[in-house]
Computed example of a mutant assay.
Amino acid sequence: MRILIVDDDESIGLYLQTVLAPFARCDGASSGEDGLLLFRQAHDHGRPYDVVMMDILMPGMDGHEAAETMRALEADMGIASRDAFKLVMITSLVDDANVTRAFFKAHATCYLVKPFDKESVLDELRQNLVL
């Protein structure tokens, strides 16, 4: 399993990589633009990510825009929805507009609310069949 973690807070990215390392190979990006670059490279090399964990609030391209662009790229490549990556949104935002956009526009699998701990991350990912 391959996981891409996109978060502008380096400590969150490193924490998630440490928590998820026993389950998957994890790569990190600190911006939506960098996340898209890694996402494209993974597809170009025939090794796409199984899971993308995406922070919503980031400077430049935010997580919504990056995730929606990734979904559009998969559609352009002819990847069926059943074979698409699982999207986990990461944020401190739990308002209706952000939750709705994450689930209905980017087709998020689940939503992790900061702050979180190892047990809550693993429970949420297992409960939603990400791990």
Rank of each mutant, 00 (worst) to 15 (best):
M1V: 10
M1F: 12
R2V: 00
I3M: 03
I3F: 02
E10Q: 12
I12T: 14
Y15H: 12
L16Y: 08
L16H: 06
T18E: 09
L20F: 04
L20P: 05
L20M: 04
A21M: 11
A21K: 01
A21C: 12
F23S: 09
F23P: 01
F23Y: 13
A24N: 09
A24R: 04
D27F: 07
D27L: 02
G28L: 13
A29F: 07
G32M: 07
D34W: 02
G35F: 07
L36K: 00
L38D: 09
L38M: 01
F39Y: 06
R40D: 04
R40H: 06
Q41E: 09
Q41G: 10
A42T: 04
H43P: 07
H43K: 03
H43C: 04
H45I: 13
G46D: 08
G46N: 12
R47F: 08
R47S: 11
V51G: 11
V52S: 00
V52Y: 00
V52K: 06
M53L: 00
M54V: 03
D55W: 10
I56S: 06
G60W: 06
D62Y: 03
G63M: 01
H64T: 04
A66L: 05
A67I: 09
A67R: 03
T69M: 10
R71D: 04
A72S: 02
A72L: 11
E74V: 02
A75F: 13
S81L: 07
S81M: 07
R82K: 12
R82W: 06
A84D: 00
A84M: 04
F85N: 06
F85P: 00
V88W: 00
M89R: 06
M89E: 04
M89F: 07
I90G: 09
I90K: 11
I90D: 00
D95R: 10
D95K: 07
A97K: 13
N98V: 07
N98K: 10
V99S: 09
V99R: 05
V99A: 09
T100N: 10
R101C: 10
R101L: 01
A102E: 11
A102V: 10
A108W: 11
C110S: 01
L112S: 06
V113D: 02
V113I: 13
K114G: 13
K114L: 00
K114D: 13
F116S: 14
S120E: 15
S120H: 14
D123G: 15
L125P: 14
R126V: 15
N128D: 14
L129S: 15
L129W: 15
L129D: 15
L129E: 15
V130L: 00
L131F: 14
L131D: 12
